[in-house]
Design a protein around this nucleic acid. Sequence first.
DNA 1: ATTTGTGCAAAACGTTTGCAAGGCG
DNA 2: CGCCTTGCAAACGTTTTGCACAAAT
Lengths: 134, 134
Amino acid sequence: MKFTKQREALAKKIFSTRSHFSAQDIYESLKDRVQISRATVYRTLNLLVENHIIEEHDFGRGKKFYEFILGLESHNHLICLRCGKIEEFKSDLIEKVVDEIARERNFKVSRYSFNVYGYCSECQKELFKDEKRK
Amino acid sequence: MKFTKQREALAKKIFSTRSHFSAQDIYESLKDRVQISRATVYRTLNLLVENHIIEEHDFGRGKKFYEFILGLESHNHLICLRCGKIEEFKSDLIEKVVDEIARERNFKVSRYSFNVYGYCSECQKELFKDEKRK
DNA sequence: ATTTGTGCAAAACGTTTGCAAGGCG
DNA sequence: CGCCTTGCAAACGTTTTGCACAAAT
């Protein structure tokens, strides 16, 4: 495993980003500072996913989102359908549900995703305003 | 909203299919019996999703899966990473977790998806065999 | 007659890949 | 030096779209 400038730049970026990002986000934010191609971004992200350094999510928006997870607690997501904001939340109950269903069905769990889609508090206000305007 | 042979065929197919299917699955199963194009399949599936007759899922396999939901209870999914089988399960606890987090965060929930990825009981056996072969 | 839906082909989109060239160990 | 990584461009698979034609109301 070689340590290239591309990998260095990508790693720095990812370690310093707390939020969720797409391959394109990473490419955009690096391309002016380092010589890097989309192909390298995709390849490196896949490597990081395989090594459980980042996690891949599908929020139903036609592209993958990634999130740094190394050493962090697992959590679930609230996705706003209007502004796209992603909030996180934890729930011990969810873990229990997963364990229980795994036992019941004799299913060996690798991972799970729990995504709640709807409208964040700010966007609810905006939607209400829109409603009045009509 | 017009009632065409294409829509009739597609509706019949969907009403009689209990499992999860992709746009391609539908197209394949209809194309020899009715004159229909991929474009129409996609357009019609999107219409049905908008009208809450079917539900769209992303199981992280690079394409969308659909499922008939009209009048059916909502449920969650176990997805086998080896054979692709999709099992369903219900959980009242999940509903409670969703309600609770929605209240806490003042989030207006439209829908949620809870997917558990791993290996079904049959595939666990196969994996065990593979292991011994090595 | 007036919509609305359809088929076709092309385009869009995110992602992967083959290959030759470059750079790390 | 050898092998791994890179960039480029092409290929990929799925889904969307523009447009002219067809069909339902």
